[in-house]
Simulated assay, not measured.
Amino acid sequence: MTLNPRLNAFRDDLADARLEGQVAAARFVAGRPARVTAAVAPLRRQPRADAPLDTEALHGEAVSVFEEDREGWAWVQLAADGYVGYLPTGALGQADPVPTHVVIAPRTLVFPGPDIKRPPLGDVPMGAAVRVVGEAEDHNARYALVEPAGAIVIQHLAPIGQRSPDYVAVAERFLGVPYLWGGKTASGIDCSGLVQIACAMAGIAAPRDSSVQEREVGTRLAGVEALQRGDLVFWPGHVGIMLDGERLLHANAHHMMTAIEPLAEAIARIAAKGAPVTGVRRLAVG
């Protein structure tokens, strides 16, 4: 069986020690646990700033580091979905302490203290994980105090493990977000990134690529008849989420944003480019 290099860390010169005996490499190493400390970090196909963006790693995400200081890049594997690629070394920090909460708003601001009138330190996206060490309150809001130093309004966070009851409603919050190949935040997102982050917020594990989502997420349906809210419709290299029996929500390059359109129109437009629907999947939710 040929291993997928996007999901298995191996090169001719270096490989994950867990793959010894399965792949050929000059050297095998155990991955060092680390965590993303940047708000969002690009995971690129090669260790260059102009290399293709395969996906994005979010603040607090756990990674295994196999090689560091490759001209400012680290070769890593993401713990959540197994994606392999190169992250900027400056975006990584220690694996501990472990985060306690996750961001549930599309984006939230991190203030230097419990005061919304102070200039924010920055922002973090939905799905980012933070460690809450206390709470505070002023006349404007209640805040979670997060490490290493900052405050986030408490309604934008939930304890890790708490699930959204409707992953489609999560996906709808990205309506109008610009299309970005490899993106998975409210600053830019692609079709499979939209499915993955929405599912994650509902406690549903989804692979990163649409082709793998088509094989592994939910159960296969016979066709596009009798669709319901939450069903996934697949084309070669593309996926969309049904809002109901007729309308499709998808991050797509035609609208260059996350948009809603009748499924029939999407099927006709994409078929005109030689790409028919390849599958429909229904997720087990609740």
Rank of each mutant, 00 (worst) to 15 (best):
G31H: 00
P159T: 12
N8E: 04
G161P: 09
L243T: 02
L53N: 03
A38I: 12
P276D: 13
L227H: 00
E68K: 07
D54G: 04
V224M: 10
A62E: 06
E265I: 14
R281V: 07
R45W: 04
V133G: 09
A15R: 06
A149H: 15
Q162R: 14
E68Y: 03
L58Q: 04
V132G: 05
A49V: 14
A202D: 01
I104M: 11
L14D: 03
Y143K: 03
G188N: 01
G134A: 10
F174A: 10
A149T: 13
L232V: 06
D69Y: 09
Q228V: 15
E216V: 13
L19I: 09
R220D: 06
E135F: 15
H238C: 06
V217G: 03
T100S: 13
A171S: 13
V285L: 05
R269Q: 07
A105F: 07
H250V: 08
V40I: 15
V110H: 01
G31I: 00
G274M: 06
C191D: 06
T108W: 00
R6S: 09
S164V: 11
P52I: 14
P97V: 14
P207N: 09
V280F: 08
G82D: 05
F234H: 03
T258I: 03
P119C: 03
E71M: 11
V170R: 01
L43T: 05
A95G: 08
M201P: 01
A38K: 02
S164I: 11
V133E: 14
L243R: 01
A141H: 09
H238Q: 12
G60T: 12
G161T: 07
R32V: 07
T219E: 12
D190C: 08
A149S: 15
V153N: 04
H139L: 11
H156S: 14
R131P: 01
P165Y: 10
G286T: 04
G113A: 15
R107L: 12
A268W: 07
R11I: 03
D13H: 14
D54S: 10
A144M: 08
A169F: 05
P165L: 11
D12H: 11
I197V: 15
R107I: 08
A80W: 04
A128K: 10
D69H: 13
D138A: 05
K184M: 15
A25G: 07
Q77W: 00
K117V: 14
L14F: 08
P119N: 08
G274E: 02
I241S: 00
I197F: 03
R215Q: 12
I241F: 03
I241A: 04
I189D: 00
P262C: 07
L58K: 01
P52D: 14
V65W: 01
N140C: 10
A149L: 12
A95F: 06
T2G: 08
W235N: 02
A136Y: 00
G245P: 07
A206Y: 02
I197Y: 06
P119F: 04
A38N: 07
G240H: 03
E135C: 13
L232T: 02
R142W: 11
I152H: 00
A15F: 10
P236I: 05
A34D: 01
Y83W: 12
F66H: 06
V170A: 12
L14V: 10
R70E: 15
T278G: 13
P207C: 12
D138Y: 09
R11A: 05
V103M: 02
P114S: 13
I104T: 15
D50C: 01
A222D: 13
L227S: 00
